[in-house]
């Protein structure tokens, strides 16, 4: 938990440096090289970027905490509604990917471990590993070609028609979520597999088998419960990668999520939008880590929060 707070702080410093300090003259960057010097100074004063750095940082964080994310340089309106709307869209996409990948990834790992060193294990392990190492946009392009262009089963853009219902939206989100699924599948399956192998090999499993418990009970009550603990930690650490992947996938599928929001903001030098978008992502990451810590302690009676 404390670590994700350090990450968040570090991220806020980086965002602040990258968005407000390093680009130099913000007013000049917005108005262009031919603008009048007085106009640039006036704009800098309006934006508050001519004040001392510490003051700027403190004001920025203080406003952010209160929900004031500043005004977009490009849209000339408050940033917050854009960020919140985009975050909602990204959450939908990430949710579809997670709902697919967590059970299937764990199942894949469990099946691989139960068929250790047999062909099925080889296929799952090697297949999982090869799709995990591929960049999301590469698997994305290949999937678009297969399912969108050749088979015509799924739409190639994630932009659903207006007033689309839940299932229509889901239909549009399947293809964009698949590259994220593939990247995460290998990690989750590998962790579940090695956790299973370790648990299957343990003394308590042997005891459970020897005292005559049915195989099903041994697996469900004894092996899985221990095997899946490390997997949960991995799933949480993958949220970071997932966010990186969202930037790429949302650009590829033209989806109005937080990833494409910060990408567009970066290209247009819309610093308030960029800063708020990235900081929001950082907060989501910290919350995800917290939830994972909590889940871990619920599932693992040996570690209870605040017991030491």
């Amino acid at each position: 938990m404390s670590l994700s707070l350090v990450t968040l702080f570090l991220l806020s410093i980086m965002v602040f440096l990258g968005g407000q300090v390093l680009p130099g003259n913000v007013g000049r960057a917005i108005l262009g090289p031919f603008a009048d010097q007085r106009a640039v100074e006036a704009l800098n004063h309006t934006l508050g970027v001519d004040r001392p750095l510490l003051t700027q940082y403190a004001t920025w964080i203080w406003n952010f905490v209160q929900g004031d994310m500043g005004t977009s340089y490009i849209f000339r309106s408050p940033v917050a509604p854009f960020v919140i709307g985009a975050l909602g869209n990204s959450m939908k996409l990430a949710a579809v990917a997670f709902v697919l990948v967590v059970p299937i990834g764990i199942l894949g790992g469990v099946i691989a471990a139960l068929n250790l060193n047999r062909p099925l294990d080889r296929i799952i392990s090697l297949g999982g590993l090869s799709v995990t190492v591929l960049p999301e946009f590469v698997t994305g392009i290949i999937l678009i070609l297969i399912f969108g262009v050749w088979l015509r089963w799924l739409p190639i853009s994630a932009a659903w028609p207006k007033d689309a219902g839940f299932f229509t939206q889901l239909y549009y989100l399947i293809l964009p979520s698949l590259p994220l699924f593939l990247v995460l599948f290998g990690y989750i399956a590998r962790m579940a597999r090695s956790g299973m192998i370790e648990a299957l090999d343990s003394d308590y499993t042997r005891t459970a088998v020897l005292k005559g418990l049915p195989w099903r009970t041994v697996i469900w009550r004894h092996v899985l419960r221990n095997a899946l603990l490390p997997t949960i930690t991995v799933i949480a650490t993958q949220t970071g990668y997932l966010i990186g992947g969202l930037v790429v996938i949302e650009t590829l599928f033209r989806y109005q999520g937080i990833g494409s929001l910060i990408f567009t903001a970066a290209r247009g030098k819309d610093f308030p939008m960029l800063e708020s978008g990235i900081l929001t992502i950082g907060i989501v990451y910290a919350v995800a880590t917290l939830i994972a810590d909590f889940l871990y302690s619920v599932l693992n009676p040996r570690i209870r929060l605040g017991s030491d």
Binding site: L3, S4, V6, T7, F9, L10, L11, M14, V15, L17, G18, G19, V21, L22, P23, T237, G240, Y241, I243, G244, V247, V248, I262, F263, A266, K269, F271, L274, I278, I281, G282, Y285
Partner: peptide, 23 residues
């Protein structure tokens, strides 16, 4: 080590986005 660990949690794409906007 703590700072490095915290830094590792930030996706490369985000770091790159910031660096490229700034530099």
């Amino acid at each position: 080590s703590r700072i490095l660990e915290a830094f590792m949690a930030i996706p490369v794409v985000i770091v790159a986005l910031l660096a490229i906007v700034a530099l």
